[in-house]
Every structure is written in C-alpha cells, then in structure tokens.
C-alpha cells in the first residue's frame, strides 16, 4: 500500500510539475468526457450542432493565432524598416497602431462583423471556409498588437547588445539577424506564450461577439447564416433556458441532478467556454513557468 502510494505520488508530482502539459491533458480529457456524456444523453441534431459549433470556434481561434503571428511579425519588420529608411512614415504607422489600440476590441470586431455581413449579402463571401477565415482575420486585427509589442521590445533590447553590431560587422544582413537570431531563436518561446494568451482571448471575444449578435443584432447578421459557434449556440433560446435552470437549481437543490440530463445542451456549451478559458490561462502560466519567463 505504502509503495503504491509512493509511486502514485511520484507520478503525480512529476506530471504536476509541468503544469502546461498537465493542464493541456486536463483540457483534452475534460472535452472527451463531455463528448462521451453528450453522445450518451444528448439528442442527435443538438449533438451535431454542438460538435460543429466547437470545431468552428476552434478553427477560428487557431486562424486568429496564425493571422496574429503574421500581422505582428510583418508590422514589426515594417516598423524597423521604416525607422531606418523613412522615419516620417514610421510616425504615421505608429499613429495608426495606437489608433487600433484605442478601439475597444469588441467594438472593432462588431464593426468588422457588419462588413462581413455586407460581403456575404453581396455574394463576395460564399463558402463557409472563407467566412471562417474572414472571422479569424477580423479578430486578429484587434489582438495582433500584443505580438507586435513583444517583438518590438525584443528587437529594441537585442539591438543594444554587442552581438548585433558584431554580426553586422561580420557581414550578416540585418534582416537575417532580426528574423532568425532575434525573433526565431531568441523570442520563439515568448511568442508561443503570447500566442497561448491570444488563443484564450480570441475564444472569449469570438463567443461574446457571436452571443451579442445572436441576441441583439439578429436582423442584421443572422439573416446571412453565419457559421455556428459556441457563442451563437449559447444564445439560442433552448440553451438560455438550460442556463436559467442553474439559477432555478440554487433554490431547488434536487433539481441539480436533473441538469446534466435535461439541460445538457446549454450547460455543455457554457461549460466548454468557461473550461477552455480556464485551461488556456493555466496552460499559458504553466508554459511561462516551465521556461522561466
């Protein structure tokens, strides 16, 4: 018994030490358990919607990561190129970057969705994939500045080190030093950490915007049939009733046991959103701790 406890304790303490892997496993395991539970107790059409809602949310948030990396990287290179060659144009670039920074993310994304609606109504965006890409693009436009800030700080920091001038003297191009030595080799871990945070925030923003649109802007956007996401699923009347049942169970304790059977759709959607946000936060923290950031 004692040996078994020792082995178990050693295993868990080792697993627990790498908190990013630990929380990633919890996230995957949690999602699997919820999926199995839903296969057993949720009706077929609702399950299909739930699966596509989750997949669409995941795809869009991953697209946000890709776009944010590209935007952040390109803007940083542009920023440093302009600083050397066209300082006045750089001031204009900084002005517009600060302007984007001053727009609350949700307002910017909401306005982007209005444009998306117009594009769909005019038949410019037809396929679901294109719509998903555009949604990812809009969200990335208002979150990529975190990547830009990080890379700008890193380049400014490394420019002051001796190795930068030493490499320049050796005939290595500035572009190579910035892209390969500073961004890729020295800032990759920091960038991944930032991208994990962006992943979490993009899921939060996406779900919130879709919820707002489905609740309040229905005539404006839903008429063009946007892809279903966790946010829009949560805004459906039956999901909302399921969530309302949580409040009911606070005064009727016996009702708690009926929630995971009779109100499964709404509770699952809400739980996936919150659970994913918690796991993303913990994965980010664990990753930062593992790499001593």
């Amino acid at each position: 018994m004692r040996n078994f406890l020792k082995i178990l304790s050693a295993f868990f303490s080792e697993f627990y030490r790498h908190k990013d892997r630990y929380w990633f496993s919890i996230w995957i395991l949690g999602l699997l358990l919820i999926w199995i539970w839903n296969i057993l107790f949720l009706n077929e059409p609702a399950l299909r919607q739930l699966e596509s809602g989750f997949l669409n949310t995941l795809i869009i948030s991953l697209l946000v990561i890709v776009f944010s990396t590209v935007f952040g990287w390109v803007t940083t290179l542009l920023y440093h190129l302009l600083a050397r060659s066209f300082p006045k144009v750089q001031i204009v670039l900084v002005f517009f970057i600060n302007l984007i920074r001053s727009i609350p993310q949700i307002v910017g994304i909401l306005m982007g969705y209005v444009i998306l609606t117009v594009l769909i109504q005019r038949g410019i965006l037809i396929s679901n994939l294109l719509i998903l890409i555009f949604m990812g693009f809009i969200i990335a436009l208002f979150v990529f500045l975190e990547v830009f800030d990080l890379l700008r700080e890193r380049i400014t920091y490394f420019r002051r080190r001796d190795f930068f001038d030493a490499m320049r003297v050796c005939g290595i191009t500035e572009r190579y030093i910035i892209n390969r030595e500073i961004i890729w080799r020295s800032s990759r871990i920091l960038m991944i950490n930032k991208l994990i945070a962006i992943w979490g925030i993009s899921i939060f923003l996406l779900c919130s915007v879709d919820f707002i649109i489905s609740v309040g802007l229905s005539t404006e956007v839903s008429a063009v049939n946007l892809p279903v996401t966790l946010g829009s699923l949560l805004a459906k009347i039956d999901s909302k009733q399921d969530i309302l049942a949580i409040g009911h169970s606070l005064s009727h304790w016996g009702y708690v046991f009926r929630l995971p059977f009779e109100h499964l759709q709404g509770i699952t959607v809400a739980f996936i959103i919150v659970f994913t946000l918690v796991c993303m936060y913990q994965i980010g923290n664990g990753y930062a701790r593992r790499h001593h950031l």
Binding site: L244, G247, L250, I273
Partner: peptide, 19 residues
C-alpha cells in the same frame, strides 16, 4: 471560484437571472 471568475458575464447573469 476560478470557473466563476473566468465565466463570461452573460453566462453568470443568465445562471442567476431567476434569482
């Protein structure tokens, strides 16, 4: 408590709407 702190406002609000 952590789940509550991470929950979007509308999830919390709808959970307590009857209360």
């Amino acid at each position: 408590i952590t789940l509550t702190l991470f929950a979007p406002a509308y999830v919390i609000a709808y959970s307590f709407k009857t209360r």
